[in-house]
Nucleic acid binder design. Structure first.
Lengths: 158, 158
DNA sequence: GATCTCCGTTCAGATTTCGAACTCAGGTTC
DNA sequence: GAACCTGAGTTCGAAATCTGAACGGAGATC
């Protein structure tokens, strides 16, 4: 399989990764969720080549994850804002943050704290079942093909 | 920044992506969570070059995400099992699945259904605040530097 | 003893990715 | 008005990565 065939796979992971599974894209999204909007800031914070920033931002705009909004004329300049589809990626970033906090935080603890505005607490993300509201771990889940799935090895993790 | 400097960043996203942010690694983990254990099966399902599979599996073992367990002698053969650290990645995969299901599922719906064994329902993952238990979206979160963070642009998403 | 399986390794060549320098359009400074 | 700055890219050669295909080897099977 080539990388650009991923989007055709009958798998939501593959389809998602075709868009965001790139080396730097998730780092750009991380910054977008921290409020970064402008080309220069993305580039400076990541310290990667400008061509990479250009290409990733264009892809994300083409996919509807980011939106280009002018913030001045003469010369015209744009900012990159998360769309609703982009905001839907928040759980992905939070899940990654959570894993990093848990397994790679130094002695000083997590480098970034997140406060839940509604309750005012510093928190971490917990995944629960949409139906019963109980926390879900890998061992609680049984996968089976839905419509349009390809046959393959399914089992239980662990 | 080079890819291999990511692990040194004071950021949990960067540190996590240094391990799992690779092109094929998350696809391998997807299969691991679906019960795939053996080299040949990973390789056949992904249809990528054997050297890539070798390299990714070795990295994941070195990082303690997968564990090599012998399942026979003469000749010695190993299976790759998710460790506890690996199982902790479940929310990451589920968050990615969720985004894909929401934005890229065809008319037939999601290609894979997941049942929560505890309640018996097909479900999708919902992220809630660890403190108050309410669902969390991007707009509900305020980030601020913790100990050891680097100064940078922080704001609110959207 | 020829072939098969599972699990890799090796290597040349194609493809991608990257860094550094350049461009361009307009503003600012003196 | 000349020199310089800024924000947002583009270009291009070098470096890294990936692919496909062959090879190895340790035992099992025919």
């Amino acid at each position: 399989m080539k990388w650009d065939e991923l989007a055709q796979e009958p798998c939501s992971v593959a389809r998602s990764l075709a868009v965001i599974g790139d080396r730097w894209t998730l780092m750009i999204l991380r910054d977008a969720f921290l409020g970064v909007r402008r080309f220069e800031v993305f580039q400076a914070r990541l310290g990667i080549s400008r061509s990479i920033v250009t290409e990733r931002l264009n892809t994300l705009v083409a996919e509807g994850v980011l939106e280009r909004r002018p913030y001045q004329d003469r010369p015209i300049r744009h900012e990159y804002h998360l769309t609703d589809k982009g905001l839907d990626l928040h759980p992905v970033i939070m899940a990654i943050v959570d894993w990093g906090d848990r397994h790679y935080a130094g002695e000083a603890g997590p480098p970034i704290l997140r406060r839940h505005k509604a309750c005012g607490c510093d928190f971490h993300a917990v995944q629960v079942c949409s139906e019963c509201g109980e926390p879900v771990t890998a061992r609680d889940v049984e996968a089976r093909p839905g419509l349009g799935a390809r046959a393959g090895a399914l089992g239980s993790p662990g």
